[in-house]
């Protein structure tokens, strides 16, 4: 569906050249939800705008649905954009128009007749769950409702691709989840390809099939979400994953505390994948080896590809017993990482 080949985007600023996107290649399949995660300034905003031609790459090409967006211009580009719609962090609704009129706007652009427009608007309002709010102005809506209008507006012309530019970053956690569910629902219902950029691993975990991690304009890691979560490679990915697993600074501090109080023991971080989540490995370990185990922190996370868990345990005992216990865990196909210093 989307093929990004060796794109680089260089801006000429007052302070010299700035490479926002640095030789990135990605391929996004039809019907999948693809997430691009990175901190601000990583180049993800530029990246997503290259996909609908709001930005033009300095080199490389962007092929969406067989058409080279990076080369298109004028009427061709405008027509292509009707099939690649976008939703925004700050919704970008027209305040001068009602909900209905906002949703009708892209239809007006596409030259759809008035009766057809009214019919389509009604369907969309129903789809995004805003029935009865059609005559309201954006200023009378909550953030979540505004984003629902944004989504309805983006879907108006039956697009093939939906680009989400930090679509949930301005919303509270609960509203974020409801919007993500709506996107997932639409993805399943009409097989829409969704590309989203975010700085929250939570969003990636919740709805994405695949993810690319961006840092300083480069894609440093990409793959299936579950795989990336279970086995992050790049340091920045590890950061994002631990952020999503609820490994807060507070927890780091308490790990440090335990290490200081029990210098003989070891703290291990265990990552459980699919099958192993259901095995009583800890009690087996305690029965087989002469160790005491203290559970420090644990969490199970769900991704669209399956669930995985992380568990922090403190193991104390004779050194060779502790070694044997850790070996046992590794044999159970549980990723075991000994934490020396938190």
């Amino acid at each position: 569906m989307i093929d990004i080949q060796n794109i680089t985007k260089v801006y000429n600023t007052k302070n010299g050249e700035l490479t926002a996107v640095d030789n990135v290649s990605l391929s996004i399949k039809k019907g999948e939800i693809y997430g691009i995660i990175g901190y601000s300034g990583a180049g993800k905003s530029t990246m997503i705008r290259l996909l609908n031609g709001l930005e033009k790459p300095s080199t490389g090409s962007v092929i969406v649905g067989g058409q080279d967006i990076s080369k298109a211009s004028g009427a061709k580009l405008r027509e292509a954009r009707q099939k690649i719609s976008m939703i925004f962090q700050h919704f970008n609704l027209l305040w001068s128009r009602t909900v209905e009129e906002n949703i009708a706007f892209p239809l007006e652009i596409a030259g759809v007749s008035k009766t057809q427009r009214e019919k389509r608007v009604e369907e969309l309002i129903e789809l995004v769950g805003l029935k009865g709010r059609g005559k309201a102005y954006p200023s009378q809506l909550s953030g979540g409702q505004k984003q629902r209008v944004g989504i309805a507006r983006a879907l108006a012309n039956n697009p093939e691709v939906l680009l989400c530019d930090e679509a949930t970053s301005a919303l509270d956690p609960e509203t974020t989840d409801s919007i993500l569910e709506l996107l997932l629902d639409i993805n399943k219902k009409i097989g829409l390809t969704i590309v989203l950029i975010t700085h929250e691993m939570h969003v990636i975990r919740k709805i994405c099939n695949r993810v690319a991690v961006m840092e300083e304009g480069k894609v440093v890691e990409q793959g299936d979400v579950l795989q990336v979560f279970q086995n992050p490679q790049a340091p920045i990915t590890k950061n994002f994953v631990s952020q999503a697993s609820g490994e807060t600074q507070e927890m780091q501090a308490s790990l440090e505390q335990i290490l200081a109080n029990y210098p003989a023991g070891k703290i291990a971080k265990l990552t459980f994948a699919e099958a192993t989540t259901e095995q009583p490995v800890i009690s087996q370990m305690i029965k087989q080896f002469d160790v005491v185990v203290n559970i420090v922190h644990g969490k199970i996370s769900n991704t669209t590809g399956g669930s995985f868990g992380t568990l922090f345990i403190h193991i104390d005992g004779e050194q060779h017993e502790v070694e044997k216990a850790l070996n046992f865990l590794t044999k159970q196909e549980i990723q075991t990482e000994v934490i020396e210093h938190a």
Binding site: S85, F88, L93, I109, N157
Partner: peptide
Amino acid sequence: IDKGVIEAARSMGAK
């Protein structure tokens, strides 16, 4: 005018 609104209109293929 919010720049984002103009960007949104462009993203919809507005002339």
